[in-house]
Design a protein around this nucleic acid. Structure first.
Lengths: 195, 195
DNA sequence: TTGACATTAGAACGCGCGTTCTATATAAGA
DNA sequence: TCTTATATAGAACGCGCGTTCTAATGTCAA
């Protein structure tokens, strides 16, 4: 068995350390990670990774996993199928957190109950990201209180006329009688298949 | 204007620093963050945050944002509506990355094209998380190559009989003639509404 | 074999890190 | 008032961090 200490495996061990510890390892810790016995060797490989663009140092000189190896690679669309797995670089790396949540401070998650939005592809059991304190635009999906009950509805506005509409045609549209209690605007919806 | 340097604003500044830098600040940097002029004051507040359970130190003594303030709060279901925003603690904090992706090394993202899975609530433009090298079970949604074209289909297996089925009834089921080329199993699907 | 280059080891060093001490200002209660 | 608890400042300290040097070894081609 040949030594597996190439630049690829080193990058991989760094990424998995960061995933596990939510921080970068120290040079002493990297000695164990890379299975070398000198910090200078660590420095040697770190320099290589910086050259390659996997790592960078921020303004204070701290190591950072840059761009690549954050999140998942967005490799194209379904029609293109799975990638040749060659050409590792020049791929878009997308973090689900960053992609789905623009304002983490003003957002929360809800588990979907009921079937009022199945027409919009939101099914029972899905999670939705709700953004608070945001002015809904026509066509947005909002979390609203109707007759003391919270539901998700399309927000419709035509001129001065404002009403709520379910995506499921079985439910009637609701006009704002007194005032509309909007809990937030649905920013994203996610569904998990595998456990 | 009163001093806003309470434990709440300090926690917030730490979280936003971590979100921006993907690491914890040093004590010197926290002096600027907290707007104090001594590292001992920083240590003073850090201890408070550790007591509170917001922070913890890992085995090497490094600061870590623990549990709380990672990801988004999962506050319940749609029927429950938006939370009273009181009782800040004892909420489930969920990171989208951790929730949706179990095996980051073996996963990638695809943008959905076509309407073959609208029946399953997966629409054109959605992103799907595809997990490679996983044995599909009956009922899983898989990325498969059919007649040289990649599509998403339900994976059906009844005894020895294996075939692919679209969620859209307009498309016919497909039996495996030669061999089934499975690119991966769909682990999750996400849709973004606000830009 | 010889040379050039890539990779590893080890040691030394300076500086900044987080800790810890003392001292002081402020606020609340008795 | 005096006491106590809370919050801030400043300084000192030891240790570990990342850097940088020299030198030895491994690899491969000429």
């Amino acid at each position: 068995m040949k030594k597996t200490r190439d630049i690829k495996s080193i990058e991989h061990s760094l990424v998995s350390f960061y995933r596990g510890h939510k921080r970068m390892p120290t040079y002493a810790e990297m000695m164990d990670l890379f299975e070398v016995r000198s910090k200078s060797v660590v420095s040697y490989w770190i320099d290589k990774l910086i050259e390659k663009g996997v790592l960078e140092k921020d303004t204070q000189g701290y190591l950072k996993l840059s761009g690549v190896s954050f999140g998942l690679p967005l490799v194209g669309n379904v029609a293109a199928g799975l990638p040749a797995s060659a050409e590792e670089s020049s791929r878009d790396m997308v973090s689900m957190d960053d992609y789905l949540v623009s304002r983490p401070d003003a957002s929360f998650l809800l588990r979907v109950t009921g079937d009022s939005m199945v027409g919009a592809g939101i099914m029972e059991g899905d999670l939705v990201v709700v953004e608070k304190n945001r002015e809904p635009k026509n066509g947005d999906i909002v979390l609203a209180e109707v007759d003391g009950e919270w539901t998700m509805k399309y927000f419709r506005k035509q001129g001065r006329d404002v009403f709520l509409e379910a995506a499921n045609p079985a439910y009637p549209a609701i006009r704002a009688r007194d005032e509309l209690k909007i809990g937030g605007v649905i920013a994203a919806s996610v569904r998990k298949y595998l456990m």
